[in-house]
């Protein structure tokens, strides 16, 4: 049962990703990305990470992609032109992608002590997750949140300085 669901949703995920690249209209690409995000959430759920699955749907499929579609609609972006593609991308690009994927795969497969997850009925409860997050990994967690805060402050500062120039002129 788990395996069937995994294959179905992994298929959705890949189909969405390929469709994202092939579509020429931005809004169709954005919608394919939503399909990818939600199928990823189902894959997390199959691995027993229920909180992660819910967060994936709420944050990525819900909030961030709404923002994407909002911007596409606001700018009313039209159809993109299809180019023939550059030759260097064809010559260098595909081998480079294969090499990078190979390196990543070997590193992940060779790495020891990462722990094992299996498709099973076992569920990591939200309480377990938060224990790990707020006790053992507290420092990385807080550092990440400070990083995000800095990004927000930077965005606000950029927006404000542009506004100030306009009013001063």
């Amino acid at each position: 049962m788990h395996l069937i669901l995994f294959i179905v949703f992994a298929g959705f995920c890949l189909a969405g990703a390929i469709n994202l690249l092939l579509q020429s209209h931005p809004i169709n690409s954005a919608l394919s990305l939503i399909v990818v995000m939600t199928s990823l959430a189902v894959l997390y759920l199959l691995l027993g990470a229920e909180f992660l699955a819910a967060a994936q749907v709420i944050v990525y499929a819900g909030a961030i992609m709404v923002l994407f579609t909002f911007v596409v609609m606001l700018l009313n972006a039209g159809r993109e032109d299809r180019t023939l593609g550059s030759r260097s991308a064809r010559v260098v690009g595909f081998p480079a992608v294969v090499v990078i994927l190979g390196v990543l795969a070997t590193v992940i497969l060779k790495a020891q002590g990462l722990g094992v997850v299996t498709l099973s009925d076992g569920i990591t409860s939200t309480a377990d997750l938060s224990t790990v997050l707020f006790r053992e990994l507290l420092l990385p967690f807080e550092v990440t949140s400070v990083l995000i805060l800095i990004a927000i402050l930077g965005a606000v500062a950029l927006a404000r300085s542009g506004d100030g120039e306009r009013t001063s002129k």
Partner: peptide, 24 residues
């Protein structure tokens, strides 16, 4: 569901697309 509240929030946040896409 263990995460019932998050499920409701998640489905509500997907529901926005109905309105957003209809208008566009």
């Amino acid at each position: 569901v263990n995460i019932g509240l998050l499920v409701i929030l998640g489905i509500t946040s997907i529901g926005v697309y109905g309105i957003a896409l209809s208008g566009w």
